[in-house]
Design a protein around this nucleic acid. Sequence first.
DNA 1: GATGAATGAGTGTTCATTCAT
DNA 2: TATGAATGAACACTCATTCAT
Lengths: 216, 216, 216, 216
Amino acid sequence: MPKQTFFKIPEDKRERLLREAAGLFAERGYNQTDMAQLARRAGIAKGSIYNYFESKEDLYLYVCRDGMQRSREAIYGRMDPEWDVYRQIEHIFKEGARFVQSHPEYLILYANISSAGMSRFSELMSLEVEKYTADYLKRLIRRDMQRGLVRDDVDVHFAAFMVNSLYIIFMASLVSSHFKIRLREYLEIEGDFTDATLAPLIQGITDTINNLLKPA
Amino acid sequence: MPKQTFFKIPEDKRERLLREAAGLFAERGYNQTDMAQLARRAGIAKGSIYNYFESKEDLYLYVCRDGMQRSREAIYGRMDPEWDVYRQIEHIFKEGARFVQSHPEYLILYANISSAGMSRFSELMSLEVEKYTADYLKRLIRRDMQRGLVRDDVDVHFAAFMVNSLYIIFMASLVSSHFKIRLREYLEIEGDFTDATLAPLIQGITDTINNLLKPA
Amino acid sequence: MPKQTFFKIPEDKRERLLREAAGLFAERGYNQTDMAQLARRAGIAKGSIYNYFESKEDLYLYVCRDGMQRSREAIYGRMDPEWDVYRQIEHIFKEGARFVQSHPEYLILYANISSAGMSRFSELMSLEVEKYTADYLKRLIRRDMQRGLVRDDVDVHFAAFMVNSLYIIFMASLVSSHFKIRLREYLEIEGDFTDATLAPLIQGITDTINNLLKPA
Amino acid sequence: MPKQTFFKIPEDKRERLLREAAGLFAERGYNQTDMAQLARRAGIAKGSIYNYFESKEDLYLYVCRDGMQRSREAIYGRMDPEWDVYRQIEHIFKEGARFVQSHPEYLILYANISSAGMSRFSELMSLEVEKYTADYLKRLIRRDMQRGLVRDDVDVHFAAFMVNSLYIIFMASLVSSHFKIRLREYLEIEGDFTDATLAPLIQGITDTINNLLKPA
DNA sequence: GATGAATGAGTGTTCATTCAT
DNA sequence: TATGAATGAACACTCATTCAT
């Protein structure tokens, strides 16, 4: 958690630090991010960061959690809870893709929790990161199962797991250097991803989900 | 690429170095792996590593590629090419799970290519890593489509992508600290993963694939 | 010297700052004492310290001098100048021991002027610290020599030096971690020092002094 | 304890590092000694120090212990164990003074264990530092008491404590900036200490000891 | 070919002091 | 006068790589 001081400084300064930190952590990874360079980019003194945060680790955790919040807001913010599963899932994928393309850093930070040498952080964050979506999806599927919109022989846990798995893979494919190469190789796409290349992919994925959930 | 010297040393020495390197890189990540510690664990002199490899990076690339080879051998090695897609995919998931549980380090190394700050490596390895499986799956699906075992309205590229995506998520769930927590949260499992908890999961995944591919 | 401001603030605030400063400087030493931590302990703002004192060094010097005053008051305060050397010396040791046990910080500060890297301070304080006692003891010994209470072949300077030397060693033995261990080792004492262990030690020391000074 | 490496390097390099380290630690104190500056003075790379020692603390402990050894050798090295207490004590003071004047750094290091913020070190070293002399003096006094050379009503522990206390004060007076000022003030000496000023002081101290120990 | 001592740029963190409010 | 945010030099320690033996 940041120190009190962090919340007393002007908002633009605070935002700039968070933005540059998210950017650097995402670009270089936790260990390769240099606090001095971060300070320089954020336009503040190195020592100031330590007036705001206990340590690099403290800063990292906050940046990740903050990124998670922002992602959720962007994706779940304008969701109508009355929509059915299918529409909600479509919304999640579309808004997710849009957000991830304008702010790839947060998805990269998310993906990074699972990388080698980060188990220290995963113990602190993974559950809180995953729980929200897991609960959300399960609740949604269960609700619509009762409404007869989802097959009643579906395993709610497994279904939620599948939906989220496809979400993760898809989003990672939009930001990670490796997964972009992979996506291009599988789909035999050349050049950058455009709406034209992405739309059918989202379609394919949501179709798969429909297949999995929709009553015969 | 290793230097000539590396292939002239006794096999067990070579193996030990590769094993310890894979272990350390997987445990700590590339940057946090210390060449001195590696040398110590491998029972050789620090300088010797530089007699075998140009640099840490050279070693890392070789260890990753070597791990990929070993993984493929374990998974595709005893596959009968005449089996149909479904049986082959089942085999891949089962052998994959088995191999990944006895040698988590290679899957971790694979997963790590996509993490922050590793794009340098992904440019060197991602394509070669992914191409094999992508080609294999596409060829297989296409073949069985011709044999009438796969729906003919299936997009071969997308189908291969989906199969491999589910494979990656599943395997990552067995090794990464983060994805293990996530799996437990979604499936509401407590304690370690056993065959009893994994079997239905594999079943669910292969069922999903069948759903996606099998003619009505 | 403190700035004017320091003497305008409420006495308890002033006292608290001096007390915490003495405590911290004694506990950690000059260099390892953190001005921010001191401010926190004293319940004032970091900047305020700099409203009262020119610098850390200025504060330190004042705290040391103030401690010296307090020590003197405690030890010489209730001394009857008419007592003979022996009684006065006994009084000094007893009151000294009592004061040093309730306020070890001041003796520690005194001892610290002589430690490595503190010659800057010793040039500023040593003389003024030592002069008082040196003069006092010499005057006293000389007076009682004239009264026939001290052997007339005694070297007054040397005698004063010896008395004070024994005083310093004894007091240091009560406060410094090292000298406590040393005292325990020499006297083969176990556990904490009590009046029962200290009394004979004081006796031994004053006997030695008597031996040195008393006419045959 | 130093690492193996330290004992494999050329002796002059080893000696130079120890000499410069003793010098700097004595001049500046533990905390204010800068490893980079030490390396520079010793003519080696900063990293090399860490090939020899685990840490600054490790180095410091070794330098102190090594200094203690050297001091002992210089002082007790050419002592004839058959000499009586008085002659041995005289020898200790004279050789001590000589050694301390040519190598003040070791005595300063010794004195420093007792300074503020060093209790961490005193717990590690004080006993081992003091035990040798304490045992030596006690044994010697006891032996000569049996030989009738020491009054039989003397408390051996206390006597040893007194002898060593006078030794410490005297030696400190030769090296510490503070204690030099103090000595000058008490003895009203001006200028540097010479053999002419020191001889009577040693005489006075040994006389005091004789007074304390010699049979009437 | 094997070894491990040497190197020095790099990194997270601390802290006395300043100064705008 | 009181406050505490800002600063940046300093500092212990790390580590990939080299190279003499």
